[in-house]
Design a binder for these strands. Structure first.
Lengths: 140, 140
DNA sequence: TATTGTTATACTCTATAACTATA
DNA sequence: TATAGTTATAGAGTATAACAATA
């Protein structure tokens, strides 16, 4: 691996660490773990089957049961039955859950401060480069 | 938050997730967890006090005990006493541990494939932008 | 007294496997 | 028979508090 690529990988590693720290800290303010905050954000958009949540988290469905349990215990989410298929349970944020999710999103300093150091032109350049790193062939 | 910044934050989130998946998968090939792989990389550079490892991981020192225990059980790391201060224990990778760390570093597909899609000029641009995001004031 | 590392404990996340209720 | 969600279990990471050895 050439030194330049190694340097970029190192920077990405640092950013990953920073991102997690800030995310977990922001979640902790609301008495949530990182995983709980992530799921709360997911179900704030609308009802979502447990199975789909597991897919988005890339974890086993059995784990989602406990995470929703804990969100439900805090009154931030609830389960509903899917009328179309009674095997399915839909998890959805309550009003309080949506409020928490909104405040959590706004409190992500990571988003505000470091990116504020870049001009709009630079942010656009960063966006385009990240897009290509994440998805090497957008239209190939 | 303006839409452009939100988009960049979203992309960073995606990259963070991708990075973790690839890192954990690469570690699993060597029967290591992500945390174990990270510590192995740290102690591959030379002996390091348990305390310092905890600082680098930003976790409590008590957690490092178990992680080093598990690396030691696999013969990848060992503890030494610090002659200068007998309270201190230095963790260091064994020969096998250094080999594993090297192969692990080389197997990080995340580094190779996505970044290969960028030209050297673009990688340099990405490096400079990430540097400024990570450390908003390098010389201010 | 203060510091280093460890132990003990509790909680959360994770995967696996077995179970239930529905389809 | 297959699928959705749950329960049970075990391993790992994490924080907290109490502890032994050393400074």
């Amino acid at each position: 691996m050439d030194p330049l690529t190694a340097e970029v990988v190192d920077l990405i590693g640092t950013m990953v660490q920073r991102f997690h720290q800030e995310y977990d800290a922001a979640a902790a303010v609301h008495h949530l773990t990182g995983a709980q905050a992530r799921v709360l954000a997911l179900v704030s958009g609308g009802p979502m089957p447990m199975r789909r949540i597991a897919e988005r988290l890339k974890c086993e469905p059995s784990n989602v049961t406990g995470i929703i349990d804990r969100l439900e215990a805090q009154g931030l989410a609830e389960r509903r039955s899917d009328p179309a298929d009674r095997r399915v349970k839909l998890a959805v944020a309550t009003g309080a859950g949506r409020d928490t999710a909104t405040r959590l999103r706004e409190s992500l300093d990571f988003a505000r401060e470091p990116l504020a150091a870049l001009s709009e032109h630079e942010r656009r350049a960063l966006r385009d480069l990240l897009k290509r790193v994440i998805d090497p062939r957008p239209a190939d």
